[in-house]
Amino acid sequence: MTRYLSLYGYFLIQRFKILMEYRLNFFIGSASTAILQAASLATIWVVMRQIPSLNGWNFYEVILIYGLLTMGESITHMFADNLWTIGWNYIRSGDFDRFLVRPIDPLFHLLADRFCHDGIGNFVTGALLIGVSMYSLHVALTPLRAIYILVAVISGGIIFIALNLITATSAFWLTESIPVTQVVFNMNEFAKYPLNIYHNAIRILLTWLIPYGFVSFYPASYLLGRDAGPVVWLSPVVATVFILIAYRVWLFGLRHYSGTGS
C-alpha cells in the first residue's frame, strides 16, 4: 500500500512536469471545465428564475446539490480519466500489454498513467458552489458538517469511478467503450436536481442501480436538515459496495482479455 502511494506520488510529479511543459494547455484545460460549469449553472439559474421553487427546493438549495455532484465528478475526472480512453488508447493500440508485463497492478498502472488536470477546475467550482450555497442559506460549517461533506465527496467520487470502471470494462469485448460509458455517465444529469421531482422509477434507478443520488441529493438533504430518512448516511456504504462490484467486473474483463488478446 505505501509502495503504491509513493509510486502514485511519483507518477503525479512526472505528470505535472509534462503539464508544465504545455503550460498554456494546462490553464486552458482547467479553465475550460470551469467555463462549462458556468454555462451549466446559468441554465439552472434561468430555470429557477421561472420557477422559484422546485418541489420545495429553492435556487441555493439546488446549487448545493449541484456543487456536491460537481465535486464528486471532479474526483473521477482527476484520478480516473483513463477509464474513458482505455479502449482507444490502450487496448486497441496494444499498449495495455505493457501494463501486464510490469510488476504492478494493471488497474493501478492505468489510472496512475494519466492524472487529468481538467478536473481541478471542477473541484474548485464545486467547492465554491457548496460554500456559496451554505453561506446564502445560513447553514453553518460545523465540524460535523465538514466531516460529513468530506466523506460525501469522497464517496461520491468513488461512486463515479465505480460506474465508469464497470462500463470501461466493456472495452475488453468491444475495444471502444466510450459509448457505453457515456450512456451511464450521462445519467448524472438527473442528479443535478432534487430526486423528488422525478417519477418513482427514475428515483429508484438513481438510488439503487446507478446511484448518483448518493453523490448529491441525499447528502444535500442531510446538510439542509430535510427529512429523507436513514439513506442520508448510506453514501460510504453504497460507494464501498459499488467499487467492490466494479473491481470484480474489471477482473472478469481482464480474464476475458487474457483469453482472447486484442
Partner: peptide, 12 residues
C-alpha cells in the same frame, strides 16, 4: 507473438 504473449503472462 502469441507464444511470447503466453510466456510473458499476457495470454492464458
Amino acid at each position: 507473438s502469441t507464444t511470447i504473449k503466453m510466456l510473458t503472462g499476457i495470454l492464458v
